[in-house]
Nucleic acid binder design. Sequence first.
DNA 1: ACCTGAACACCGTTCAAGT
DNA 2: ACCTGAACACCGTTCAAGT
Lengths: 237, 237
Amino acid sequence: MAKKVVPEEARRRRRPTRQGTVLSERLIIDTALRMLREHGSAGLSARRLGAALGADPSTLYRYFDGMDGLTLAIGEELIGRALDAFTATGDWRHDLRELGLLIHGAYLSHPQAAVLTAGRVTGRPREIAADETVLGLLRTAGFPDAEAVGIYHAFIDQSLAFAALDAGALALAETSRTSDERQWESTYARLPADEYPHIAATARLLAARMNHSAYPLALDMLLDSAEARLRAVRTTP
Amino acid sequence: MAKKVVPEEARRRRRPTRQGTVLSERLIIDTALRMLREHGSAGLSARRLGAALGADPSTLYRYFDGMDGLTLAIGEELIGRALDAFTATGDWRHDLRELGLLIHGAYLSHPQAAVLTAGRVTGRPREIAADETVLGLLRTAGFPDAEAVGIYHAFIDQSLAFAALDAGALALAETSRTSDERQWESTYARLPADEYPHIAATARLLAARMNHSAYPLALDMLLDSAEARLRAVRTTP
DNA sequence: ACCTGAACACCGTTCAAGT
DNA sequence: ACCTGAACACCGTTCAAGT
């Protein structure tokens, strides 16, 4: 893998393309993100991306290791945007909540890209930076190392997992253009109350909830538990 | 959508295929799951599935609404298997934990299928049954409806989201055949301690954790918080 | 050094024709 | 009623050839 991809810094001469474009990783990623937003995740292909860039599709292979490498680069870009928007306040619980919502938000702002990208955890620079930040918040707050590492792991995977799930739902809703609110309403309202008593009893509450992400609540519950664990550590040191 | 798909019960005559197979939804889903396991998620295509079944690929279109419909059916199958393996004990926390681990496990036992399927939440029968079960556990435990609905939502989405994330990682590891344990070890061990002090300080703990799913811990943390909320409701009724 | 063009080996899906 | 075969409009990727 990564066979003949030339790293961005090592590029010597760049000739404009037949149609006059001067290519770069930046330009390719930005164009890919735009295509994903405009045409959905099925709308991105090497051939179409080439056409959008005014370049032969095969040229992409010296910038990225195939479509897979491009996907990884897009994921890095999204994580990076979340990190850039983050500033710590010193309150660990507030900061973790903020960072989680930023990561989730960065993916959801490009749902079609997130679908492609999520679950491709990579170990590339911006991701490592996010890891360091989260670990730092927890260790500084006073969590013992073993506890900090566990909570870090649960926190970061929860953020990425919900980002992927919610992006998938959003991407689907965008392409199928169905009024989703009504869809949930009718799904739950239509069920026989004798067979599904608990759904029937809460149908209104369900319909109101299911169109929003469960991530904020799940995140708060994780932080609840973390806070209780920190108290336990402090009282029995 | 679902244009000319004949529902399984409504099928009249079935002619064996040129090669002698008698098709059914069951047979098609089982064959697809086997192909996914054996050849990875890129190894499933209408043409290859047709060949494996001994039928023309175009025949599949009267059993499922394209590859997308087949994907949904595979998702239903995985959820169904988790539910079939579940029996309630009456201890809500134990039961939710059990059910969460079963759902996660069902997806992870077919990681290649889970990758395709996850994030395609559908509202089909087996899924609704899972919803009813979870809501029932929470309401019977004494959670007020609004609380029960919120926790149900966080629980079910967290289970599916982690299932998808972990399945993705597993599927990737299976196809790339890299020794993953060593990969994490080297990633973290190689980082400069002055730039990444928190990672450096916990590198050993990280390497030990990152190859396992964070789902069991995240699940326990969610249940911790739920239990605390239930206590709060009980003491101030 | 970098981009191009042709070629290879595939896709999903439709629909008229066969049995 | 059900399955088939040909056709359409696409894919990702490689590599020798061009500039």
